[in-house]
Design a protein around this nucleic acid. Structure first.
Lengths: 162, 162
DNA sequence: ATTAAAATATTCAAGCTTGAAATAGTTTCG
DNA sequence: CGAAACTATTTCAAGCTTGAATATTTTAAT
């Protein structure tokens, strides 16, 4: 209740079209995302956030600080704490002390964690391949170009480092 | 742990491209969605699921059964129960008994609910207009065409009534 | 050096989400 | 009729998510 709430001006035709685009974008994305979440749960006994954290860790050579993970995934710090706790309990990740800084720790995948993620990543890619299987190279290229354009515009608005 | 887990075959170049498309689609969508959630909370003291439920109710003349809401929004029944409970507590919605069927009830917006949603919807549209403001009519039309194409392919895969 | 400010991570309450199980009502059909 | 199947909804445990509050450590300013 703290902001200006500038009055919404009468909606123009282009405004309606932008809204229509957003609703379609959201629907499409949710359709895929929900299916991936379902499969992660049913087939791999995992979840999307866990997959995302492991994916970030797998890409890094020397581990990531908690805050680096949360920045990359654009989620809160407290969120990452819980997920890394779980991964650690299961022997998939661990926290390593940082020599110069007693506040922080580097989170790494264990060898087991790397093995498990490699399997999951391969299966995940095959799912996407199946789900988006109706699209040929031109479809894909066209979509990617549009999305890059949109994201560029977006990142000017929504401040987003990286 | 119940499914076949057919081995993921060696990933082809087009498979990698599909994955790249999916990651971009997810990122773009999340960027907008997160911003909308933030604004709903900060400026309107509300949430996206509440907005979605009210939106569905506002579009219906005579109210919707719980199961109709959950089918339209593609979320679980139990989920809708909680959200409608909250809306009801706040005097924005109410459950009306269905004459012929004592199991079901029709959920409707109260007059107050309609007023509040009308305001929120207008502000929501102005947000989208602002966030997607960098896109002109051609950009929008191009994206929408691509998304329609993708969604069509998708709905063949992911069973999705409606 | 002392203090203030910034950075790092955790804890917590509130809410969303799911799928499974439980309740209760309705329909089918033998 | 009465059992079985089906439908509508709610309850619940487990997990995700946020933002605020807290604790601890480090850095910067005087």
């Amino acid at each position: 209740m703290s902001r200006s709430l500038k009055a919404a001006t009468a909606s123009s035709p282009i405004s309606k079209e932008r809204l229509r685009l957003w609703l379609k974008l959201l629907k499409t994305s949710s359709l895929v995302e929900d299916e991936i979440r379902r499969r992660l749960r049913r087939d791999l006994n995992s979840t999307l956030p866990r997959f995302d954290v492991m994916s970030a860790l797998a890409r890094s050579q020397d581990g990531l600080k908690m805050s680096e993970i949360s920045k990359r995934l654009r989620v809160s710090n407290g969120n990452i704490t819980g997920i890394v706790d779980k991964l650690t309990e299961e022997g998939l990740a661990l926290r390593v002390a940082v020599p110069g800084d007693r506040r922080a720790s580097l989170v790494c995948l264990t060898p087991k964690g790397r093995t498990v993620f490699a399997q999951h990543a391969e299966i995940h890619e095959s799912w996407i391949d199946e789900i988006l299987g109706g699209l040929n190279a031109d479809d894909i290229e066209g979509m990617i170009r549009r999305l890059d354009h949109l994201t560029l515009k977006l990142e000017e608005k929504v401040s987003d480092g990286q």
